[in-house]
Simulated scan of single mutants.
Amino acid sequence: MKKLCAILLAFAMAPAAVQAGDTAKATAAAAGQQRQAIDTMQHLLDLLETAGDVDALRAVAVRALGDQVRLNQETGDWSKNNLGKSVSELGRAEADRLNGTAGKQTKLADDVTKLLQRIGEAKEAAERRGDKPTAETLGKVLETAKGVPEALRQAGQNLGDNKIGPATGNQRRGTEGLGRMIGAFDELGSRRFETLSRELRALIDELKQIKDVQTSVRDEAAKAGESR
Rank of each mutant, 00 (worst) to 15 (best):
M1K: 08
A10R: 11
M13T: 15
A14Y: 02
A17S: 10
A17C: 07
V18R: 11
A20R: 14
G21Y: 05
G21I: 08
T23E: 13
A24C: 03
T27G: 02
A31N: 09
Q34M: 13
R35Y: 06
Q36G: 07
A37C: 10
L45M: 15
L45G: 06
L45S: 09
L45H: 05
D46L: 10
L47N: 14
D53F: 00
D53I: 13
D55R: 13
D55L: 07
L57W: 04
V69E: 14
V69N: 12
N72L: 10
N72Q: 14
N81I: 06
N81F: 02
N82H: 11
K85R: 11
R92K: 14
A95W: 03
D96V: 05
G100I: 10
T101V: 13
L108E: 06
D110V: 11
D111W: 00
V112C: 03
V112D: 05
K114E: 13
Q117A: 11
R129N: 13
K140E: 15
V148Q: 06
E150C: 03
A151S: 10
A151Y: 01
G156Y: 05
L159H: 05
L159F: 03
A167H: 05
T168N: 06
T168I: 12
Q171C: 03
R173W: 01
G174V: 06
T175F: 00
G183W: 06
L188T: 07
S190L: 10
S190V: 14
F193W: 03
F193K: 10
T195I: 08
E199T: 14
A202E: 15
I204L: 12
D205R: 13
V213M: 02
A221H: 08
A222W: 05
A222Q: 13
R228Q: 13
R228W: 04
